[in-house]
């Protein structure tokens, strides 16, 4: 049966495994599934491999055992064209908003680079960008700024906005608000919810803050000592 989902099937990640050493097991036999429009919250103590799990699902790192399935095809066996499509459809957003943009480039040119990558004709750039800025609630003024002239909250919004230009189906949010102030955190969380209902995007939200997870997610997983416990 064909299903539109992103699925992890009993994946494990072990670092430094070789002939002689067993290596350090980060997580073992982790399975879960996520569909567009849903939020899967991933929490657990720090240093237990939440971020690593996120990167494995995003396809940046390969799992030691097990497979990640995207629309029923295994990541490791994907053809190049399909993989490029996957690369667009599954995006990852990192914790530190200040590092997300090239400090020597204006925000605008960072954003237009993405549009050029998508081979969108130049005429549409302006309208696409405007549309994106409306979604994330920023004015056009920011495009002519450098990243250092913007606040963390604004940069995090822009980071989400730039990802949205790629029209992804899933976004892996790796601690999206832990570098932000409480009031900005609330703004970003609300914005993420709005974007989700508008564009039907599936989130995997990684956070150490239980309150954030509870607020955002439909299902929630606790990653503790290498095992994932799924809580509805």
């Amino acid at each position: 049966m064909f299903s539109i989902s992103l699925r992890a099937d009993s994946i494990s990640k072990i670092y430094g495994a070789g002939l002689l050493s067993e290596g350090r097991c980060v997580f073992q036999n982790v399975s879960f599934e996520i569909r567009p429009g849903e939020t899967f919250g991933l929490t657990g103590p720090s240093g237990e491999g939440k971020s690593t799990l996120g990167r494995v699902i995003a396809g940046i790192e390969k799992p030691t055992y097990g497979t990640v399935y995207y629309e029923d095809s295994s990541l490791s066996e994907m053809k190049k064209t399909k993989y490029m499509a996957f690369r667009r459809k599954v995006q990852i957003m990192f914790q530190d908003p200040t590092g997300a943009f090239n400090p020597r480039k204006r925000i605008g040119s960072s954003v237009f680079d993405v549009l050029k990558l998508l081979k969108i004709p130049n005429i549409e750039h302006a309208s696409k960008t405007k549309e994106m800025l409306i979604t994330i609630g920023l004015s056009e003024e920011v495009l002519s700024r450098y990243p250092s002239q913007l606040s963390g909250g604004q940069l995090q919004r822009l980071a989400i906005g730039r990802i949205l230009l790629l029209e992804p189906e899933y976004i892996i949010l790796d601690e999206p608000t832990s570098a932000l102030d409480v009031s900005v955190q609330a703004q970003i969380l609300h914005m993420l919810k709005n974007v989700q209902t508008e564009k039907n995007i599936g989130y995997i939200l990684i956070s150490h803050d239980q309150a954030v997870i509870r607020f955002m997610s439909d299902t929630c997983g606790l990653l503790e000592s290498g095992q994932l416990r799924v809580i509805e």
Partner: peptide, 22 residues
């Protein structure tokens, strides 16, 4: 290792483009 290089890689930019523009 910087965030913007990592995110450019994730967005599917080519290595040449990342080296050139980032």
């Amino acid at each position: 290792g910087a965030g913007y290089v990592k995110s450019a890689q994730c967005m599917g930019f080519s290595s040449y483009h990342i080296m050139k523009s980032d």
